[in-house]
Nucleic acid binder design. Structure first.
Lengths: 221, 221
DNA sequence: GGCGGTGTCGAACACTGTTCGGCATTATCG
DNA sequence: CGATAATGCCGAACAGTGTTCGACACCGCC
């Protein structure tokens, strides 16, 4: 039923390949015409096959979204594994900022993928147990990274997830392709770090009311 | 074409009434079965009519969503008109918090309405010019309220919109009916006020690094 | 050569939003 | 009052959807 990492038979591996082709084509169509902007007949044509044939590889249209959902979170986990919130020089904020920039870049680089992963854009779709597990794993990874810089309180974690998805969401829905909210990220990190008490290495390790970015901004006009 | 506030003819007023009935039934069905979980035949049955009849009052199914969208923002404007961010005693944070509690209560009290207003959940739906104007009016009202307490910088406004919709979004999608993110709102307001320099009236008007709520929390085991 | 899988598809089903023509009922006016 | 125009409503149909089923063709194997 589930395709484990080790599919033995040759026919099984060929079937997995076509399934991958189906998912790839679904991604492309989703990016071109929106997540719900394509039909199974259209997808079949893109794969070079007729609609009923798809059902030999996939249980339903929603199952395709499930594969895509899982693939998105797997990519996220692969990318996030390289992040580190702790800095060798002790400048935790800098490492924090760099990682969050990576997170927002990952999200904004593919709005379609973001919508599938974070929003409920596809009617009737809810991830399967195994696909959902991939997203939970990602959150656990995030939690571990935050612990590296001493943030372990649930309320603080919740507050930061709200801030980061809020920024990302606003960026993607209200200024796609721009940086109106992306450019606020560093200031948001400083604001949050001030709030939870992560010292600013650039001010001699003191927890200051960091308005650096705002002062810079106020000096333009 | 558009139903202005003063529809003269009696037949027109009767038509407006049925149109309202249609929209009301659409709200109810949306709350029961999801925004996209009902068909026009189903909606027609709820109104006591057959599907084609709906087209005498409404251009399309998407037009129904448009009416709902506009109605949602009109309600928001009506509610938000009563908010004030400035406090007679000078405690701007308290007034700010109260208003934002009102905002989050408005959003979480009807997740379906929130999804239609803030998320892109209905495929192919984008608000019409006039409906969009209602949401813009709401933002202008928000901007005016923020100006009452001295927050006029675009970046600060963008940052706070990100935070508030981030909290609301997380609350609705990850803890519907609960208060896991709602209860973080006051702390978020303090964090934001510290950041932008709105004085805390409870500490003698000084801009302090306000960790009051967090200290309370940390004292619990 | 026959045979069980495997892969593919045509046809069909129930459903969707939407359109059109025609039927009643009602309102207007000579 | 009676003819006429307008209005409200709906049955039937169209093109499209996701999905199912039965029937083809092909394949390696005994």
């Amino acid at each position: 039923m589930f395709d484990t990492a080790e599919s033995s038979s040759l026919a099984d591996r060929r079937a997995d390949a076509t399934r991958d082709a189906i998912v790839d084509a679904a991604w492309q169509l989703s990016r071109e015409q929106g997540l719900t902007g394509w039909s199974l007949r259209e997808l079949a044509r893109a794969v070079g096959v007729k609609a009923p044939t798809l059902y030999a590889y996939v249980d339903s249209k929603l199952a395709i979204y499930d594969l895509m959902f899982r693939q998105g979170w797997d990519e996220m986990n692969r990318v996030a594994a390289r992040w580190s919130f702790a800095d060798p020089d002790g400048d935790h904020r800098r490492a924090f900022k760099r990682s969050m920039q990576g997170f927002m870049a990952f999200c904004t680089s593919d709005p379609t993928r973001y919508h599938l992963m974070f929003q409920r854009i596809v009617p009737d779709f809810s991830p399967s147990e195994t696909a959902y597990a991939a997203s939970v794993a990602s959150y656990e990874q995030f939690r571990a990274h935050m612990a590296e810089i001493g943030i372990t309180d649930d309320a603080d974690l919740d507050l930061w997830t709200a801030i980061s998805v809020g920024l990302t969401d606003q960026q993607i829905t209200n200024d796609p392709g721009g940086d109106r909210w992306t450019r606020l990220l560093d200031a948001a990190v400083d604001m949050f770090c001030d709030h939870v008490g992560i010292p600013d290495a650039t001010t001699g390790g003191q927890i200051a009311n960091n308005r650096q970015t705002n002062h810079d901004r106020e000096q333009r006009p």
